[in-house]
């Protein structure tokens, strides 16, 4: 439970920062260059750390290093989902299409990272636990969230360009984000009844594993920031086009 609170705290700060950034669309778009440079630098550092700093884990061997790409995808995926609701609320409150562009951009990048979680997870599980899918709490909840935001993107493809479609998508984005805690609790309840290898606890990590992991979080955050800013620019250009 305590870990969830720390997770939520960091999430809140990140959401507030991104909301502040996204509030001024022009600035957010211009920030893409900075984000890009930062992302590349941090990715290099992260990758170096994964190769040289991270140890070969005794039990699972080298394949355990998937941990350093699989886990960092999660926070940015959830950040994308929460920002979708922020964009939705912004649009419904101000009726300003700019907030709707924030919602679509964060949803798309969020789903991208969410997909990566669901791809790297099984790739890691197969060699270690010998089956592709592990009904573990985080992975299963992430799968359900993937369906919610894939439905969000599907809803948007049906009728874009009108305020009605934007309002519909905004409401669904808000519903999706409101459902996140319930999904986690429900999956925990449902899966709790069946025993599964749980994710290796992150607290007791030695420094040699913590450094590449934290670098991963920060690097992926910058990648998210970069992709979000670029996608926002594309949305802005598309709006100006029509």
């Amino acid at each position: 439970m305590e870990e969830a609170l720390r997770y939520a705290g960091v999430g809140l700060v990140a959401t507030a920062a991104l909301t502040w950034l996204a509030a001024d669309e022009a600035r957010a778009i211009r920030s893409a260059r900075v984000a890009g440079v930062l992302a590349l630098a941090l990715l290099a550092l992260w990758f170096g750390a994964v190769i040289w700093v991270a140890p070969i884990e005794r039990a699972q061997g080298i394949v355990q290093k998937i941990f350093y790409v699989h886990v960092p995808c999660a926070p940015v995926a959830y950040l994308g989902f929460v920002m979708t609701a922020v964009g939705g609320i912004g649009f419904l409150w101000r009726r300003d299409a700019h907030w709707d562009r924030v919602a679509i951009s964060s949803a798309e990048v969020g789903v991208l990272f969410c997909t990566l979680i669901l791809v790297t997870g099984p790739i890691w599980a197969k060699p270690v636990w010998n089956h592709w899918w592990v009904w573990d709490l985080r992975l299963t909840s992430t799968l359900v969230l993937w369906f919610i935001y894939a439905a969000y993107l599907f809803l948007r493809t049906l009728s874009s360009g009108t305020d009605e479609a934007r309002a519909f998508a905004s409401i669904y984005g808000i519903l999706g984000t409101a459902a996140i805690p319930f999904v986690f609790f429900a999956v925990d309840l449902a899966q709790g009844k069946t025993l599964h290898p749980s994710n290796p606890a992150r607290e007791g990590l030695p420094a040699s594993m913590l450094v590449p992991l934290l670098l991963g979080f920060v690097a992926f955050a910058c990648v998210f920031w970069y992709l979000f800013a670029r996608r926002l620019e594309v949305a802005k250009l598309e709006a100006r086009q029509s």
Binding site: A151, F154, L155, S159, A179
Partner: peptide, 26 residues
Amino acid sequence: LSASARFREFLLPILLFPLILPVLVF
């Protein structure tokens, strides 16, 4: 939400099922 959408027969289950999962579990 989906009343006026084009594929509304598909849309409602796709939108509803992932969100309603907690209700089913509980």
